[in-house]
Amino acid sequence: MAIGDDVSRGVTAKASEPTDLTQDLMAIAASQDQGAYRRLFHEITPRLKSFLMGQGTVEPVAEEILQETMLKVWQKARQFDGSKASASTWIYTIARNAKIDRFRKEARPMPDPNDPSYIQDPPETGEQSVAKKQESNHIREAIATLPSDQLRIITMSFYEEKSHAEISEELELPLGTVKSRIRLAFGKIRNELKDMA
């Protein structure tokens, strides 16, 4: 008697009979056949557990990965393509990926609440606020002293956020000239700021 006949009559196949994993997987995909899923589950899970534990996974974790794998088999059975892989290869791939995902999550360190990136900066004092404003004014004044050709390139680069290549193309200048003018502008701004200090 074929396994398909057993399923249609609601009879469970004897444990000694070989289970056709592909047939059961296709029955799950076609109609979410619970009998086929039960047979597939009993046939493949002992081997999967042995596979996981053979790779150094402790039993409780292997059990969790196994449950996650079999849930995915139920949910994703329609994605199985027998022309690309056998049913057991497809299921083992799901198990392997579930194991990898599990260990990646465990390997990811928990955020450290004392990490400086999580600690807020103290509120700005009045003195810091005034100093920032003065610095900002000094920079604006220094930029205003630039020759118009340098000022245009600095404006395009830092305020309009254009790349050197875009500036070169837009102003019809060689790329080297654009970079040179930016360097000259920075040198001039630096000197102006020193004089203001």
Score class of each variant (00 low, 15 high):
Ala27Met: 14
Pro113Met: 05
Ala142His: 01
Glu63Phe: 01
Ile167Thr: 03
Gly82Asn: 11
Thr177Val: 10
Ser157Lys: 11
Tyr159His: 07
Val130Pro: 05
Trp90Asn: 00
Asn97Met: 06
Arg181His: 04
Asp6Met: 06
Ile3Cys: 11
Leu25Tyr: 02
Arg183Ser: 07
Ser163Ala: 08
Asp20His: 06
Ala85Phe: 00
Thr22Gln: 11
Leu171Gln: 13
Pro109Tyr: 04
Arg108Met: 12
Asp6Asn: 05
Leu52Phe: 01
Met26Ile: 09
Lys84Ile: 02
Ile100Asp: 11
Ile3Met: 15
Met156Ala: 05
Thr125Lys: 04
Gln75Pro: 02
Gln32Phe: 05
Glu127Ser: 13
Val7Asn: 01
Glu63Thr: 04
Gln128Ala: 14
Ala62Leu: 02
Pro46Ile: 06
Ala95Glu: 00
Lys72Tyr: 05
Gly56Pro: 00
Asp115Phe: 07
Ile91His: 00
Ser8Asn: 10
Ser50Asn: 09
Ala107Glu: 08
Gln134Glu: 15
Asn114Ile: 01
Gly54Phe: 07
Leu146Trp: 00
Arg183Leu: 07
Pro46Ser: 09
Trp74Ser: 11
Gln32Glu: 10
Leu66Val: 04
Ala107Pro: 03
Arg104Leu: 11
Leu193Arg: 14
Arg140Ala: 14
Ala13Cys: 12
Asn137Cys: 09
Leu171Ser: 08
Leu171Glu: 04
Met70Ile: 04
Gln134Ser: 13
Ile153Ser: 02
Gln23Glu: 15
Ala13Leu: 15
Ile94Asn: 01
Ile94Thr: 01
Met70Trp: 03
Tyr37Leu: 11
His138Thr: 04
Phe158Ile: 03
Pro147Lys: 08
Thr45Lys: 09
Asp81Cys: 03
Gln150Arg: 05
Arg152Asp: 14
Thr69Ala: 01
Asp6Tyr: 04
Phe41Gly: 02
Gly10Asp: 00
Glu17Thr: 09
Lys72Met: 14
Ala107Ile: 05
Asp5Ser: 13
Ile44Arg: 00
Asp195Phe: 09
Glu124Phe: 06
Gln23Met: 12
His42Val: 03
Glu141Phe: 08
Ala27Ser: 13
Met156Phe: 06
Pro123Lys: 00
Ser8Tyr: 10
His42Glu: 12
Asp149Asn: 11
Gly35Asp: 13
Gln150Tyr: 02
Trp90Asp: 00
Ser88Val: 09
Thr22Leu: 09
Leu52Val: 02
Ala27Phe: 08
Glu166Gln: 14
Gly54Gln: 08
Val130Met: 15
Val7Ala: 06
Pro18Tyr: 13
Pro46Asn: 08
Glu161Ser: 10
Ala85Leu: 04
Thr89Gln: 14
Tyr159Ser: 09
Gln32Val: 02
Gln134Val: 13
Met53Gln: 13
Glu192His: 12
Glu43Gly: 04
Arg104Thr: 09
Asn97Phe: 04
Ser50His: 07
Gly176Leu: 10
Asn137Trp: 09
Ala185Val: 01
Leu25Ile: 06
Val11Lys: 15
Asp101Tyr: 08
